[in-house]
Amino acid sequence: MRHILHQISKSRYFISASCRKRVSAPSPHPLRDAGFTLIELLVVIAILGLLIGLVAPAALRQLGGARTSIARQSIERIGQVLDLYKLDVGSYPSTEDGLQALVTRPADTENWNGPYVKDGRAPLDPWNHPYLYHNPSERAGHDYDLCSAGPTGRNDETAHQICNP
């Protein structure tokens, strides 16, 4: 029995000695062991730059497409509001009155039942430019022209306009 206890005590010492934490000698250059190297930082920055360079243009294209879609939907909604205006007044607003006629009563109209828009101001396109409105239309088969000048805000031949169908 003593022999067994002696063996157990030896094995306990062996286990506890092997589980002890080993302490290494302090490094002569403690700052070299801390942090990242300049090469590692440059590699990470280069990878992030490449990812941003690839993702950013795709995200901007999506944003541009979304604004175009919003402009088309807004033009359709404003067209419905102009139809309500015509039901009340009897005709669409003139080019001189413009879309401001949906907010404030034009001087020469009767049966104006507005304001027809909630904001109290003429609607703006997704690029915060005023919509282009002409009555009578310059296109055949349309009563009026309602367009967005697009991101440039210019009303010329080179501008990418979005108009009512």
Rank of each mutant, 00 (worst) to 15 (best):
residue 4 I to V: 11
residue 5 L to R: 07
residue 6 H to E: 13
residue 6 H to W: 09
residue 6 H to K: 05
residue 6 H to D: 11
residue 8 I to H: 06
residue 11 S to C: 05
residue 12 R to W: 06
residue 13 Y to D: 06
residue 14 F to L: 15
residue 15 I to H: 04
residue 15 I to F: 15
residue 16 S to L: 13
residue 17 A to I: 02
residue 17 A to L: 05
residue 17 A to S: 15
residue 18 S to R: 09
residue 18 S to A: 14
residue 19 C to P: 00
residue 21 K to R: 09
residue 23 V to E: 05
residue 27 S to H: 13
residue 29 H to F: 08
residue 30 P to S: 05
residue 30 P to E: 06
residue 30 P to G: 01
residue 31 L to C: 02
residue 33 D to Q: 14
residue 34 A to L: 15
residue 35 G to M: 11
residue 35 G to L: 10
residue 37 T to H: 01
residue 37 T to C: 02
residue 37 T to D: 05
residue 39 I to N: 07
residue 40 E to R: 01
residue 41 L to E: 09
residue 42 L to W: 03
residue 44 V to M: 04
residue 45 I to N: 04
residue 46 A to G: 15
residue 46 A to R: 07
residue 46 A to W: 07
residue 47 I to S: 04
residue 48 L to D: 02
residue 50 L to I: 15
residue 50 L to D: 03
residue 50 L to E: 02
residue 51 L to W: 04
residue 52 I to V: 14
residue 57 P to T: 06
residue 58 A to V: 14
residue 58 A to W: 14
residue 59 A to G: 07
residue 61 R to Y: 11
residue 62 Q to E: 10
residue 63 L to K: 08
residue 64 G to D: 14
residue 64 G to Q: 15
residue 65 G to Q: 13
residue 65 G to C: 03
residue 66 A to P: 00
residue 68 T to E: 14
residue 68 T to C: 06
residue 70 I to E: 14
residue 71 A to Y: 10
residue 72 R to T: 05
residue 73 Q to D: 12
residue 73 Q to I: 06
residue 74 S to C: 04
residue 79 G to Y: 10
residue 80 Q to R: 12
residue 80 Q to N: 14
residue 81 V to E: 11
residue 81 V to Y: 07
residue 82 L to F: 03
residue 82 L to D: 12
residue 84 L to C: 03
residue 84 L to T: 12
residue 85 Y to E: 12
residue 85 Y to Q: 08
residue 85 Y to A: 07
residue 86 K to G: 00
residue 87 L to N: 12
residue 87 L to M: 08
residue 88 D to F: 03
residue 89 V to D: 08
residue 90 G to P: 01
residue 91 S to R: 15
residue 92 Y to C: 00
residue 95 T to R: 10
residue 96 E to A: 15
residue 96 E to T: 09
residue 98 G to K: 05
residue 99 L to M: 08
residue 99 L to V: 03
residue 101 A to W: 05
residue 102 L to T: 07
residue 105 R to D: 01
residue 107 A to M: 05
residue 110 E to H: 03
residue 111 N to F: 09
residue 113 N to F: 02
residue 113 N to A: 07
residue 117 V to Q: 10
residue 118 K to V: 12
residue 120 G to D: 04
residue 121 R to Y: 10
residue 121 R to I: 06
residue 126 P to S: 02
residue 128 N to K: 15
residue 128 N to L: 06
residue 128 N to T: 13
residue 129 H to Q: 10
residue 130 P to S: 08
residue 133 Y to M: 09
residue 136 P to Q: 12
residue 137 S to M: 04
residue 140 A to F: 04
residue 140 A to H: 04
residue 141 G to R: 03
residue 144 Y to T: 01
residue 144 Y to I: 01
residue 145 D to G: 00
residue 145 D to T: 00
residue 147 C to K: 07
residue 148 S to I: 06
residue 149 A to D: 05
residue 149 A to P: 11
residue 155 N to Q: 11
residue 156 D to P: 01
residue 158 T to F: 08
residue 160 H to G: 10
residue 160 H to W: 00
residue 161 Q to R: 15
residue 163 C to T: 03
residue 164 N to S: 10
residue 165 P to H: 13
